[in-house]
Amino acid sequence: MSEAASAPLGVLGAGVMGTGIAALAIGHGIPVVLVDVSEDRLADARRRVDAQLRHARLMGSVPARDAAGLTTAVELAAVAGATAVIEAVTEDAEIKAKVLEEASSLFAVGTPIISNTSGIPIGELGRFVSRPDELLGIHFMNPAYLITMVEVIRSARTSDETMAAVTGLLARMGRRGIVVRDAPGFVTSRLLHPMINEAARIVGAGVATAESVDDLMRGCLGHPTGPLRTADLIGLDNLVDALSTLWERTGEESFRPCELLREKVAAGHLGRKSGKGFYDYEKVLS
């Protein structure tokens, strides 16, 4: 197999997004080295990458060919030699800073470092890498293997060479990028996250049930699933983290995570990934 010879893509963080991005890449014949903090998480991640690859095949969203290899590791050093690395660790600026700093010390010049952050400015993260011109944001949507469009964030320091390398990588994975400039939340999270937050506030205030909010947004406004099903898919913990990072950076009240969201996270109701969020996934349709 010729793919076996091609350099792997490094993916840091094997959560909802890291596993989805790994399924997308191997489904397109690009081998992946996937890193997380524990063997337990990685064992679970391997199962989820397999399941997501099957889902991608079912939906016809990856080419009908053998998947490339998936390697998992607990040491960041395993991604040295990767053609590019995508950071998809927890949405926490401190954790990202630490991971990016360590990763950037491992790579040869010319290796793009990509952050999948939902909204932390790329310029801010650039302070932690040795070559900020090689850093940019690619905001993959969830599920990464089904949604073909991505938001590409170019910081003031991202170089043309980096943009060209990443455009090639996206093309190999059948993704289409829209390039935007750097700002907290970029475009998609700046619009989506306050909407979800407000939808949760509406439910918390008893104005309407989660089902009614989603049905109205689908039936009247053409939203594909409704904001609260989207929230459950994203993961309510990640949503609260992302809203907090945006609130801290902008002071905008619309980003302050509402009480109902925080309560659900405290209760361990994280959405689809824990089986329950605004919906109970044992009982209702996804």
Binding site: A51, L58, T225, R272, L285, S286
Partner: peptide, 12 residues
């Protein structure tokens, strides 16, 4: 009636 996320659950 069903969406792409449920499709995989159906398979399983």
């Amino acid at each position: 009636l069903v969406n792409s996320m449920f499709a995989m659950e159906l398979v399983v």
